[in-house]
Simulated assay, not measured.
Amino acid sequence: MTLDALALDGREKFLASLIREAAVLALEGFRRQSGAAVSLKGPQDYLTETDGQVEDFLRERIAQAFPEDGFLGEEGGGAPGEQVWVVDPIDGTANFARSIPHFCISIAFVANGVVQLGAIANPVLNDYYFARAAQGATLNGQPISVSGVEDVSSSSVEMGWSNRRPLASYVSAVQSLFEAGTNVRRSSCGALGLAYVADGRSDAYAELHMNPWDCLAGLLMVKEAGGVTGPFLSAGGLADGAGVLAAAPGVAEIMSAATGIALQDGQDFLPDTGLQQKRTA
């Protein structure tokens, strides 16, 4: 089924309202969270009550508004389809659980083989990022763009860590980046790390493995803000996760060399969609 522009307009308007409603729930949960017990899904993989509450809310609202669309959430799962909402109810849960105000909600809408819409909300700062394919990216309604950094010695990048890849690979990538002359940070919230590349606060973000709910909205934002990314959907990322790279053009090659993640040279389509790969000039 092909989604037309009018149908996408409706989802765009819906998403702009939905992300704000979800942010209210997340902020209420954050204010209650201090000192509360948290669970572990795995090593350094936290789960709070708010994760489930926000995801349930999003799942129900989307099902009511667009019952024909699929849903894929970090906590409750789901199945990718021709049209699917991909949701992380709380990204940066380790921060959230320790009352560190650096977390967000990330929502992406995928249709026609590409990420069409993306929204990220930082409830504590009242920051709302939004992007639509081929229509740019905004922060609180104002257009944003990646940084114009060209000198790596003046750059600052973020490198996320994943236990799905060998620790030695992560250490090697970070060492290469430091040796290249950049500053490397880690803030434990990949979706916001990508948003900060889109608005120029950070010059690049990379992680050797990310799940789709953590990165699809942010990758769209970086591309729409003039940045460079690696392939994710075409690398099978919607089903299995994949490496993520997003950068200002001036440091993209350095990030790619350090991480081993290739740079994308065209539109990132889902594999086997029957859609022709578009190439940029």
Results as ranks from 00 to 15, higher is better:
3 L>W: 07
5 A>R: 03
6 L>A: 14
8 L>T: 02
9 D>W: 01
11 R>F: 10
12 E>P: 04
12 E>A: 12
14 F>Q: 01
24 V>R: 15
33 Q>G: 01
34 S>H: 07
35 G>I: 09
36 A>F: 02
36 A>Q: 11
37 A>T: 14
38 V>I: 14
38 V>F: 09
47 L>T: 07
48 T>R: 12
50 T>G: 05
63 A>M: 07
65 A>Y: 13
66 F>Q: 01
69 D>Q: 07
74 E>T: 09
75 E>I: 15
78 G>T: 05
78 G>R: 01
82 E>L: 13
85 W>H: 12
87 V>S: 06
106 S>T: 03
107 I>P: 13
116 Q>S: 11
117 L>F: 02
118 G>H: 00
119 A>V: 06
120 I>F: 00
128 Y>E: 04
129 Y>W: 04
143 P>I: 02
146 V>S: 11
146 V>N: 03
150 E>S: 12
153 S>Y: 01
155 S>W: 00
166 P>R: 11
167 L>T: 06
172 S>Q: 07
174 V>C: 09
174 V>D: 06
176 S>I: 01
177 L>Q: 05
178 F>R: 14
178 F>E: 14
181 G>T: 03
185 R>H: 08
185 R>G: 04
189 C>H: 01
189 C>K: 08
189 C>L: 05
191 A>H: 07
200 G>I: 12
201 R>H: 13
206 A>L: 15
208 L>V: 01
210 M>W: 05
211 N>Q: 09
215 C>P: 14
221 M>V: 00
225 A>H: 10
228 V>Q: 04
233 L>Y: 04
237 G>F: 10
237 G>K: 10
239 A>I: 05
239 A>T: 10
241 G>I: 02
247 A>H: 02
256 S>A: 15
257 A>E: 14
258 A>S: 13
260 G>S: 12
261 I>A: 09
261 I>E: 05
262 A>P: 00
269 F>M: 04
276 Q>R: 12
280 T>Y: 14
